[in-house]
């Protein structure tokens, strides 16, 4: 086919598909206007000058970044958020792998039932799920009463407004995000591969270590990335269950925006939080690049 003919064919294909492509425009417009531009606006806002009596002034400055990065209150909150995010991600992974493995081995009716158990929390708001923990761990709640009745503790202990509860509640919130991609990856591991491994002399553990585990990596990578990103920026749970004592980055950002009405500074904090999350994710992606490359589809 000559170059010219190729171009004619391509043009014909475009003409045939054009009406279809146009259907996508409203959604593209929606997301460009009300998703992409707001993010641009957030970055732009972080360079605006502060002002008294209104959210931001005219003129541009780098001072917000200097202030945010120079003050241990903010860098401390950022570090705490990143570390807690990493901890939550790790715990989610530990909990999710057995679930995903279990889910991927079920068939028919039971698969649907357990799938529903994992998926339905996704459809229930974070607030409600956190509230469930408040009920469970209240001083006169069932946990304390069971522990008292079992004689394991002498006085009810206070769990509410502790960092442990925040971590546990966030693990609870994000576990489905980890389970689903891992279960999908495990389902994509063809069963003959396990048969092949066994026929070559590998026992159950050996097959898991050499075949199943590496091949689940695309799911692990997706889950780890998603949970880390979401948990670093989680606002509601620490606000509701963490009390006033511990400052995480999202709470600091919201306080600046809503409490102090300091939009440019709040924006700078948000940008710093997003950039450092992105940096961690990038390092993780690069570090696991070889494995990901080998195990993708």
């Amino acid at each position: 086919m000559s170059c010219h003919e190729g171009r004619v064919a391509a043009r014909a294909a475009v003409r045939r598909l054009l009406p279809r492509l146009l259907l996508g425009l409203p959604a593209v417009a929606l997301l460009t206007l009300f998703f992409v531009l707001p993010y641009v606006e957030m970055v732009a806002m972080s360079f605006r000058a502060p002002a008294f009596g209104q959210p931001f002034g005219s003129g541009h400055t780098l001072m917000h970044y200097g202030r945010a990065l120079g003050d241990p209150i903010y860098t401390g909150a950022l570090l705490r958020s990143l570390l807690t995010g990493a901890l939550i991600t790790a715990l989610c992974l530990v909990i999710s792998f057995p679930l995903a493995l279990h889910l991927s081995r079920l068939q028919g009716r039971w698969h649907v039932v357990f799938y529903a158990c994992i998926v339905s929390p996704l459809l229930i708001g974070v607030l409600v799920r956190n509230f469930g923990w408040m009920v469970l761990v209240a001083v006169d709640g069932p946990f304390n009463r069971w522990l008292l009745a079992a004689g394991l503790i002498e006085r009810p202990f206070r769990v509410l407004f502790t960092q442990g509860l925040v971590v546990m509640a966030l693990v609870h919130v994000f576990t489905p995000f980890m389970v689903l991609p891992i279960a999908t990856a495990l389902r994509n591991v063809r069963p003959e591969l396990r048969d092949a491994s066994a026929s070559l002399g590998a026992g159950g553990w050996e097959t898991f270590r050499r075949v199943t585990l590496p091949l689940s990596f695309p799911g692990v990578q997706a889950g780890v990335t998603l949970v880390f990103v979401l948990s670093v920026a989680a606002y509601v749970t620490p606000a509701l269950l963490g009390g006033q004592g511990i400052a995480y980055m999202p709470a600091v950002v919201v306080r600046e925006l809503i409490g102090s009405f300091a939009w440019p500074f709040g924006a700078a904090l948000a940008v710093i939080m997003a950039a450092s999350t992105l940096a961690v994710v990038t390092v993780f992606t690069l570090a696991t690049h070889r494995l990901a490359e080998r195990t993708r589809g």
Partner: peptide, 22 residues
């Protein structure tokens, strides 16, 4: 691209929209 609002934290999107809508 179409699922980005699901993949990025709600908080950041909310902040961007707060400024932009204003």
């Amino acid at each position: 691209a179409m699922t980005l609002p699901l993949l990025l934290p709600e908080l950041l999107t909310a902040i961007g929209l707060l400024f932009f809508l204003n």
